[in-house]
Design a protein around this nucleic acid. Structure first.
Lengths: 220, 220
DNA sequence: GTCTATATTAAGATAGAC
DNA sequence: GTCTATCTTAATATAGAC
């Protein structure tokens, strides 16, 4: 556990509240009162709310991204063509490893990812494009290797369909697992949820291209 | 085109701005200035911002839901088992019909749907559960008919994965089509996008259940 | 129904004493 | 580094003249 400096108290409270309520709906007043620090200390230590959001995301991305990058490297170094299932599987271990980093780390990061991507300010997109562009490149390389038949356009759309499923599911994973628990008596943990996503995504990305979609509504 | 009363001017400006920027990021000041009406008229005619949001959504849902309901009735009345592809296809015509209702109606409704569902206030969920519960029932009935092997738990999750793809894609459909246009020179219209979603969703919902997902992370 | 003017609330940010 | 007190801005909502 990290030493409880004022900075860490703020980060810890902020990540939990951001995950639960989103960035816009979490005021600095709420964060500082939960963290039991003075309101002014956020601006003293981080400069602005925006910078605080980035600091919260950075703490997780620094753990997650190198692990994901390594997993993709292994897949790309192999002789044989990977399956889509294997490509999506390489996200799972880096995701689950966050539970060793902080308690409920996987769950918090999942919600932050969902929030961060939908958020209109695009905090997460900033990280992905400016800090982790190389990892993005590896992701697309792996998917293309697994399913080389997709045209660039078809590929683009399916990656975004995938992103939609992931972002939406991650952002509301806790609420959805609560429903599943009360309605189906099904006690799914975060790992179980991530593992359920994989076959859905692999099948969607690997779906046969509809014959009519080559002509309908598309002009080249 | 509807008569340009103050009420309609407000609704027209509001639906466009809500679709573009989301509900929270659209102030009444912006709406009334774009609609060229007085700020106070929103509260006079609608009572509150929340009520205005509901009125905007209602105008579209009243068009869309009966059409969808009929399409699902037809599918369910047929003798033979529908395919998942057919089930998702039954959303397409009601969606496209909105272009006859208002100019760019399909596109605006798609974005509103995405916004309305992600939105933390849950405006859209309110409509679905209190006003259109019967349509929801028909949707689940049709999917279950098309893929009866899914367990209730598996079914629940796959419906939400589907919802994620749809909501995310719809909310950002314009931005994504812009990227596709500039990067791949691919001019996809709204209909083309909707038709591209169908095979992805059908394949995902119909994916084989992973052997390990029956045990890992699930306790019954 | 429409307008101006204003009340009210809540947010992010900062000045300045300690 | 931390605290109190305050500034500034921008939002929803409403009172009351016309």
């Amino acid at each position: 556990m990290s030493r409880q400096t004022t900075q860490n108290k703020i980060l810890d409270a902020a990540e939990r509240l951001f995950a639960e309520r989103g960035f816009a709906d979490t005021s600095l007043r709420l964060i500082t009162s939960e963290a039991d620090v003075n309101l002014a200390s956020v601006n003293y230590h981080f400069g602005s709310k925006k910078a605080l959001i980035k600091a919260v995301l950075a703490r997780y991305l620094e753990q997650f991204m190198p692990r994901l990058s390594n997993a993709l490297d292994e897949l790309l170094a192999a002789e044989q063509q990977p399956t889509l299932h294997q490509v999506f599987d390489s996200f799972v271990e880096p995701m689950l490893a966050l539970n060793n980093f902080r308690s409920s780390g996987t769950n918090i990061f999942m919600q932050l990812l969902g929030r961060g991507y939908s958020d209109s300010q695009g905090h997460l997109r900033w990280f992905l494009t400016t800090q982790y562009g190389d990892v993005l490149t590896k992701i697309t390389a792996a998917v293309k290797r697994a399913n080389p038949e997709l045209s660039p356009g078809e590929f683009f759309w399916r990656m975004h369909f995938t992103l939609g499923t992931v972002v939406f599911t991650l952002a509301s994973n806790e609420a959805l697992r609560d429903i599943a628990r009360s309605e189906f008596n099904e006690n799914l943990d975060v790992e179980g949820l991530v593992r359920r996503l994989v076959p859905f995504l692999a099948a969607g990305v690997g779906a046969p291209v509809a014959a009519n979609s080559l002509n309908d509504g598309v002009s080249k």
